[in-house]
Design a protein around this nucleic acid. Structure first.
Lengths: 368, 368
DNA sequence: GTGAAAGCGCTAACAT
DNA sequence: ATGTTAGCGCTTTCAC
């Protein structure tokens, strides 16, 4: 049952009656190799079932084709969606990605980075904490080996591909205002999450555009409990928003739970909306209005940008802001009769693209 | 910004005024090294910030400390839960795990295995297809490098750590029968999924224990759509089960969606239950009765068993059947008033442990 | 167009 | 207790 000793390049060379360097050239489809020779080598390779050792290659090239992906919490469905897209894109060009759960802790980021580095990875996609560029950079030693996604870094001198959270929140809030809501609760995130901060800013700007509005803002972590506890905070202290915006879909679900528990109807008594566009938000059982992050595109672009950085000798800063999309569902739109079909909620409002000019210098321009 | 040329073992040796082998010994905390020498070396290592190259190590040792994890679908919340537990356990002993999405296709399994093997991984945890031992083994070349989890393999000569799906289904079905249901629909899985098969078997055995029962069985894949389409199949063709058992929580959610769409109330009109014990099933908004797989324990045990196999020279077969736990929620128990608190559904029925005797020979004993 | 040989950074005999 | 040395499987000058 032992696996047969793998053939090495030397075996192939012998079998083909050529030198190892010739075999190496053939493998890498390098320059000029006589077509007969090439054929002989190819035959030998096929016959021996030879596969070059990635380890030996890595030793000499210094490249492992291993990418790290740091996510805040794999049990928040948004991250698996993102991870899938990243893996697909990376896989296409022969890269393997290692997903790491950070629980949004800088210490975990450091721990994983150390271990990954010890494994010899080439680069990192950071879709977690935020505001931790220093930690990341000091572990990696080189900003060309990392790209931030999902949450923008606080500095502008490191690459990122994130959503235009400000505009997304703006559009969502305006929509709720247009539907007549004036007292709106916002469940903000922890201070390190820049995407959450941007969303809050969008909310605040929209609220100020209108008179007679009242905003209730609390700050929480990203779990379901956060949603429940925010609702409790408000209802137990006499605040009664007619609509609630949660920082992400998971938190929104938690808020729905608490409202349900208290016998409040959604959206008749309280409307509710989230962010991210997770799959479950679309479920008719849940029917949650959300601002979609387009995780597919985000992941794809992040991988491409990172690979570009890794490849080119000179570092090229990437700074991309992706448009979000407002997906209206029952949780804000009213009871949308049972038979509304599976396309419900795809009546979307696209929030136009917006791109930040990239300048190589990487000066720290504040967001917005 | 370039990362400073990493120090090598030779640098350390020079700095410490010893030979490389001595440094190597110190690194690996090997045998006897004079305590002064050791101190000198340690100092040099610290001072140079030396970290041994995993690649060079891998080249000589043939071990990468990389584990592959094959999952059917990362967007089914059960798999992230499982993955998390596996990563944690593997991380504790310095292993890194690469998660791969197979979409339950043997061709994808093969593709990933090939790529992972090219990356030089040590072993694989297979939590996907099932009945594909041949493929897996021929890719890996050695059964000591793989362990099946979640879904049992069809042969008994390869290691696995899975739930006692038969007993779980038995207990769930008996519970529904006890509550008076006689016409029960079962949404089975595709033929290759042995855990689904076991669940169906448990269901059938329980149904036969009682007179005057009627079972509606359909076979579907594992997505939400499967749940919806199963419900449609039944209702559009005059079958009307008073309870539905879905093969997993995701499918159950899909079924709930279709029932809701058709204006049927859960559980008043139709009761529903799933499998796996995913986090979302516990949400009061969903309140889905489920048979919990204990993904934490399953992952932990799978990793331990695999590492044991990888370590020991002689292959030791592991065959473990883990108890499942019935978690009763609103979807089967009645409307469980709004204020039932967050512990609702933790009133659990433990389904006793059951262990299959392991014999080294690995003869093919059929399940049950 | 092809080959010889020197490493990449480490481990593991085998000396001493 | 410590040092010497031969690889691990490959890439890459540098010759021919």
């Amino acid at each position: 049952m032992r696996s047969p000793q793998r053939a090495t390049i030397v075996d192939v060379a012998q079998a083909a009656g050529v030198s190892v360097s010739t075999v190496s050239r053939v493998i890498r489809e390098h320059a000029d190799v006589g077509s007969e020779t090439r054929a002989k080598v190819r035959a030998a390779i096929a016959q021996l079932g030879y596969r070059p050792s990635p380890i030996a290659r890595a030793l000499v090239s210094g490249q492992t084709r291993l990418l790290g992906l740091l996510v805040a919490d794999l049990t928040n469905p948004f991250y698996p969606q993102l991870a899938k897209s990243i893996e697909d894109e990376a896989g296409k060009v022969g890269y393997t990605v290692v997903i790491c759960n950070t629980s949004d802790k800088v210490s975990e980021v450091r721990r994983h980075l150390t271990r990954l580095l010890a494994q010899g990875l080439d680069g990192v996609i950071h879709a977690s904490v935020g505001k931790d560029e220093t930690t990341v950079l000091s572990a990696l030693g080189d900003r060309s080996r990392v790209i931030f996604t999902n949450r923008p870094p606080s500095s502008q001198s490191v690459s990122y591909v994130v959503s235009d959270n400000f505009s997304g929140a703006l559009a969502l809030t305006r929509h709720l205002l247009a539907r007549g809501h004036r007292q709106i609760g916002f469940i903000g995130g922890p201070p390190y999450a820049n995407n959450a901060n941007e969303r809050l800013r969008g909310f605040e700007v929209a609220m100020r555009e209108m008179d007679e509005t009242q905003a209730f803002v609390v700050h929480k972590e990203f779990g379901r409990e956060s949603g429940s506890s925010a609702v409790s905070d408000w209802l137990d202290h006499g605040s009664s928003p007619s609509a609630i915006i949660a920082n992400n879909d998971t938190v929104a679900l938690g808020a729905m739970e608490e409202l349900t528990r208290r016998g409040l109807r959604i959206p008749e008594d309280v409307a509710i909306a989230g962010f991210d566009g997770t799959d479950f938000s679309a479920s008719p059982v849940i029917g949650l209005t959300t601002v979609d992050q387009h995780s597919d595109e985000m992941g794809r672009l992040a991988v491409r940008a990172l690979l570009k950085q890794l490849g080119s000798g000179t570092f090229v800063l990437t700074r991309q802001l992706l448009p979000m999309e407002l997906l209206l569902r029952r949780s804000t739109e009213g009871s949308g009769r049972s038979g509304m079909g599976s396309d419900a909620g795809r009546a979307a409002t696209d929030i136009g693209p917006r791109t930040v000019p990239v300048d190589q210098s990487g000066t720290d321009i504040p967001f917005g």
